[in-house]
């Protein structure tokens, strides 16, 4: 059984708020380097970039697929759909925004940080997520959160990028 926990009327303003927070956090004249985690995070990063275009700030975009940095290869095997990582800029000494759709255990973010540091040494990394669903298992929290929700451990929370409007769905899964 699945139900919508946030419809597009909640998701769109949340994206606006996130974009505003990123713009306010940027120093004048500074470029923003935004890295989306494949594939939900990349879509959220695209949406944020679109919103930031209206301001004077230049946004550089990159994407990461963290499949090769996960800690569960032994138990689940390699991901059948791996997308190439693509960071078209040098990240050394840059202020990076790491963007994901849903923050849950924090393991994806840990893996993404590992991969980012294999590309170079950024000045700072901030985390922006569309939904924080609770249940963190690592000392990782987001700097910018669009929507907050407390989901139980047996629930899966997903961003659905319907062309009619994005929404967040919750569904019970086997653990």
């Amino acid at each position: 059984m699945s139900n919508t926990i946030f419809d597009s009327k909640r998701v769109n303003p949340a994206l606006d708020t996130m974009a505003r927070a990123i713009r306010e956090g940027a120093d004048d004249g500074n470029d923003i380097y935004m890295i989306g985690i494949q594939c939900g995070g990349a879509k959220v990063a695209d949406a944020l970039q679109h919103r930031l275009k209206k301001s004077a700030i230049t946004v550089h975009r990159g994407n990461l697929d963290i499949s090769f940095y996960r800690d569960d290869l032994d138990t689940v095997g390699p991901n059948p759909e791996v997308r190439p990582s693509d960071l078209p800029f040098d990240i050394t000494d840059k202020h990076i925004y790491l963007v994901d759709d849903v923050l849950y255990t924090g393991r994806t973010i840990r893996a993404a940080l590992g991969e980012i540091f294999d590309y170079g040494r950024p000045a700072t990394v901030k985390l922006a997520v569309l939904v924080d669903r609770g249940g963190h298992e690592l000392p990782i929290s987001a700097d910018i959160v669009g929507l907050s929700h407390q989901a139980e451990a047996g629930q899966s929370v997903k961003l659905i990028t319907d062309p009619e409007g994005w929404y967040i769905k919750q569904r019970r899964v086997k653990r």
């Binding site: 499949s67 693509d86 590992g114 590309y119 170079g120």
Partner: peptide, 15 residues
Amino acid sequence: SFIDINRRPLKKAPT
């Protein structure tokens, strides 16, 4: 998807 790792300056992943 592994081609990219071989082109990076730091050619190492923990897989």
